[in-house]
Design a protein around this nucleic acid. Sequence first.
DNA 1: TTGAAAGCGCTAACAC
DNA 2: GTGTTAGCGCTTTCAA
Lengths: 350, 350
Amino acid sequence: MSKKNITINDIARSLNIAPSTVSRALNDSRRISEATRQKVRQKARELGYELNLIASSLSKDRTGTIGLVIPNISQSFFSQSVSGIEAVTRENNCRLIIAQSNESLEREKDILRMFQSYRVDGVIASLSIESNEISHFKELQDKGIPLVLFDRVHYGLDCTKVVVDNYEGAFKAASHLISSGCRRPAHLGGPLKNRLFRERADGFAEALARHDVPLLPNFLLSTDLTPTDVQDAMRLWMNQPKPPDGIFTASASTGLLLTRIARNMQIRIPDDLALITFGNEPCHEYTVPSLSAIDMPGNEMGGTAAEHLLRAISNPKTEKKLVIKPLQLYIRNSTLRKSMTHVADRPHPG
Amino acid sequence: MSKKNITINDIARSLNIAPSTVSRALNDSRRISEATRQKVRQKARELGYELNLIASSLSKDRTGTIGLVIPNISQSFFSQSVSGIEAVTRENNCRLIIAQSNESLEREKDILRMFQSYRVDGVIASLSIESNEISHFKELQDKGIPLVLFDRVHYGLDCTKVVVDNYEGAFKAASHLISSGCRRPAHLGGPLKNRLFRERADGFAEALARHDVPLLPNFLLSTDLTPTDVQDAMRLWMNQPKPPDGIFTASASTGLLLTRIARNMQIRIPDDLALITFGNEPCHEYTVPSLSAIDMPGNEMGGTAAEHLLRAISNPKTEKKLVIKPLQLYIRNSTLRKSMTHVADRPHPG
DNA sequence: TTGAAAGCGCTAACAC
DNA sequence: GTGTTAGCGCTTTCAA
């Protein structure tokens, strides 16, 4: 029973003017008299006219839509990013298509194909774990579609990238462990083929070196951070005569898992083992003890990525930048050791 | 430097056939010879042709896109729903536009307008808290756009709705409190103008009645569930001579808040106070104690909603249904009281 | 089975 | 300022 949609032709006819005039009136063109502008807008409201974005897109060869690919929307970092991106796109009234790669390269390729078919004006992406190969992004760029990467970026792509200083964040985290009294800090890291994890590992190692704390054998692990990996790492470490007294993990979820494993192993945090994670989930405040973390400014990173993309869309010659966002250290109870003051449970700052 | 996009005309020209033939070949029409079909597909691949969905949508008057409005993607229930919906839409190769209302009615209206402009083929929605008024959805339906609601539904709308049995879930939760030994259970509920919260409150009350447990004065509160409300409720209850010995909260996040407040008030869970929440967040497993919950099958609800919508799109005469999904009780440590066995920390079933 | 032609609703030259 | 006209890339009659 769908009422036929009202078109500009309907408005034109009922006003005895040309469709193009209606279009101009509706688009706030300068070459239109105020009188007709009013008249048209009035009639449009009266008839319940809604612009057909599809037709408009086809003739303008711009859809006003940007595509977003993220690995997984349920990680709070990414859902924050989405909010940041949405805020900006909305402000510039441009639409957003979101798709999850679920960490699959195949899916990521599919999504980009879909975006191309959709003729999105630009793409924002955070790479899947599997994406070592990036030809699909290159193809996208070859078609002239602007691209901005954030967080999980690939330096082989010539585009604006919004990242955090993983090295510095890891350095901060490790330094914090040390200043909390840890003398045997360990790092549970991600796959080193990934630059992001390499930087985190390097920052960790450098902090130890800088503070004259020895990096013990096996105390810097690189794994895929699956639950099994985490379990194995803990077993390996805790079965040593002298296990670590502090752990810096390369991902937020790993930290949560660690609290559970530690509890089951009867290891007390922070007394036996301090813990700090790269990445901050809301849940970090609710665990016992609450978890210290390096917080990644998802909202802000998303916003910046979107701003850069919009700029690149309106001016393809826009310079490509590497934007590095600052990281903040949230100190909670998981790194407050015996000797130190206890911080009452409360929401983290900001 | 954008390579011009290849069109079916390019293919047609280079093959010396008509564009319409190319279209038929590409769309697996039946009225095409296998030979030309092959030829065309071959050439298309060769030239790197990608369908222009915009043009296709305009001429078919179907976009193959459905719009999704949810209050907030960062609640795990909703991000699960998104996954469920995505799985189904993807299978039927149809695209998804996601937008968040952020619990704002104004924003929700905006989004629907945007969806109409986009000519989405259908809409799936979960209402914002503010959406008592639903004229914007009625307008959508008047334009012939199929609508399916899930979880946060409005019974004034004539459309398929996918919900859980809130009454029964609350009944289960309260019964569980009672069988865990609570004799003074309380309910921290949401705004009663909202049917969903009314049902939860009713289910709670009924369970008490059924088990001959008295519902004490002020032990069934209706609030907006803001952090302040939760704080106030706890103060009210705990200052009583005989405070509750078990709480059933109407939302998952409220439960998390409660654990913190309880800890600060030196109230032990579950010994002094058992706790169970309507809604289950991943975080529930990591709190100490872990939190018992009524789990809402987000993934499944989303999937069902999507299936129904697709059906309604392909056949507008499809019967509108009320689908009620079963709820599951996850028993964790927050309701395992002194007398009872301790459940080791581990991932919940399933 | 294929081609020719019209049209989806809008925009943008180009005239007047 | 406004109208005329010609597309945007595809689908879909209708003929052949």
